[in-house]
Design a protein around this nucleic acid. Structure first.
Lengths: 218, 218
DNA sequence: TCCGTTGTGCACCGATCGGTACCGAACCCA
DNA sequence: TGGGTTCGGTACCGATCGGTGCACAACGGA
C-alpha cells in the first residue's frame, strides 16, 4: 500500500538525472524532516527534545529516524550544521563586509533578527541548545526568565531615579539603559559558561563602559 | 546509634535561646545542604540536576530532602533565593551606588567576578539554570561551546585582516573586539529567549555600535 | 520469479527519572 | 515508662527516557 505516495515523495526529492539507489525508497523528505528537527531542538534544547517530540514533528517513526540520521546525538550534529547555514548565516555574511565597522553592524543586526524572528523559535540554537528544557522544566524556565526580568527592573528603577536627579542626561530611556546592561551581563554569563576567563571578560566590560551611557543612535 | 552525632550537629545549627521543636531533630544542617544544592543546580541546571546528584552533594537521603524542602521545584525556589542573596548580591550592591555610571560599573564588574570565580561553577545560575544539562547532554554541551568559539574565531580572523589593512587603529586587539561582539550577541540571544522583542533589542545594539570599536579603557 | 538491499512499523528493552509508602529511630512531654 | 511527633533509610512506584529486534514492504537487478 501507499505506493503512489512513496513514489511521489521520493521522486520529488531527488534530482532527475540521479540513479535511484537500491532498496526501498524513503517515504519522507530528509531535508524537510531535518528542518523540522531544527525547530524542535531550537525551541526545546538538546535534552528537552525527546525522540517522541522529534518524530512527531518530523512526521516519521523512531526506526526511520535512526536509520536516516544515526542517533539523537548525530541528528543534533546535522541539525547544528543546517542551522549554521540557514538561520545563523548572518555570521558568514557579516565577515564578508568591507570594513570592521560594517562587520560589527551586520553581525549584531543579524543576531537580533535571527533570535527575534516570529516565524522561528526565540533565541539562538547555539546558546539555548543546552538552555531550553523539556516539559518537566518549563516551570523552572519561567521562574528564571522572571528572575532575569526582575534584575532588569531593578536597574531600570535605579536609572529612573538617576534621571530625576539629573545624574543622567534628559531624554535618556532608563529601560533601555537597563536592558543594555542586562544584555552585556547575560552575554558575560554565556561566555563564562563557555570557558572564557575573568581577565578577558574584564576587558570586554571595560570596552562596554568606555562610553557609557551610550547614545541610542550609532 | 549515632546519637552523639545527631546531638552535636543539631545543637550547632540552632541558636541557644530557641525552644527545640517536637520530634526527632534533624541530622543535617539545612543551610549547608541548601548551599550544596545551589552548586549542583548552578553547575548542572534544573533538569540536569537529578535527585541522586542533589542528595549525594547535600549528604542526605531522598526522604530527608522531601521532608525538609518539599519537592525538587520548591527546592529550586529556595536555591534561587539563596543564590540571589549570595553570589548575585552584586546586583543589589550596584544599585546602591551614588551615580548611574558607578551602578553600571559595579553591576558588570560583579557579573564578571561572580560568573568566573574559580571556587564556584562557571556562569550564572539565572542564565544557565535552564542552560546546563545532565550527563546525557554533556556531549551536546561541548559541541555548542565549540560552535560559539568558532563564531568568535571567525570574527577574530576577520578583524586581524582589518588590522593589517589599516581598517582598525593600530594597537587594537582583534580577539578582544571579537569577544566583545560575541558577548553582546549572546546576551541578545538570552534576552530574546526571555521574551524581549526585536525593536528593543535593536536599540540595544545601536547603543553598542554608537561607539565602535571601543577602547579597552573606560 | 527469486534475491539482495533498504525503509517502515510495532512492540519491546534496560536505565533513569521524580516521588512516595512504610517502618523503625530519636526526640519532647506527661 | 508510655504516647505524640518528626526524621531517616529502604525499597518501591508509574512514567519516561534513548535505543533496538524483528517481521514485513518496496525497490533494483539477475
Amino acid at each position: 500500500m501507499c505506493t503512489d505516495r512513496y513514489r511521489t515523495r521520493y521522486r520529488g526529492s531527488v534530482e532527475p538525472g540521479r540513479a535511484r539507489p537500491a532498496g526501498r525508497p524513503r517515504a519522507f523528505d530528509a531535508d524537510a524532516a531535518l528542518d523540522a528537527a531544527v525547530r524542535v531542538f531550537w525551541a526545546q534544547g538538546y535534552e528537552g527534545a525527546s525522540l517522541d517530540d522529534l518524530t512527531a514533528a518530523m512526521g516519521i517513526t523512531r526506526t526511520s529516524l535512526y536509520r536516516a540520521f544515526g542517533n539523537k546525538e548525530q541528528l543534533f550534529g546535522r541539525v547544528l550544521a543546517r542551522y549554521t547555514e540557514t538561520a545563523a548565516a548572518y555570521a558568514l555574511r557579516a565577515v564578508g563586509r568591507p570594513t570592521a565597522r560594517e562587520v560589527a553592524r551586520e553581525f549584531l543586526d543579524g543576531a537580533v533578527q535571527a533570535t527575534t524572528d516570529p516565524s522561528s523559535p526565540a533565541g539562538c540554537l547555539g546558546v539555548q541548545g543546552a538552555l531550553a528544557v523539556g516539559s518537566a522544566g518549563t516551570a523552572a524556565r519561567g521562574v528564571l526568565a522572571s528572575w532575569r526580568e526582575a534584575g532588569a527592573a531593578l536597574l531600570r528603577d535605579r536609572f529612573e531615579r538617576s534621571l530625576q536627579d539629573g545624574d543622567l542626561p534628559a531624554g535618556t530611556d532608563p529601560a533601555l539603559l537597563a536592558r543594555h546592561l542586562m544584555t552585556v551581563a547575560n552575554g558575560v554569563a554565556v561566555q563564562a559558561a563557555t570557558g572564557v576567563g575573568e581577565s578577558e571578560l574584564r576587558v570586554v566590560v571595560d570596552m562596554t563602559l568606555s562610553s557609557w551611557p551610550p547614545s541610542p543612535r550609532g
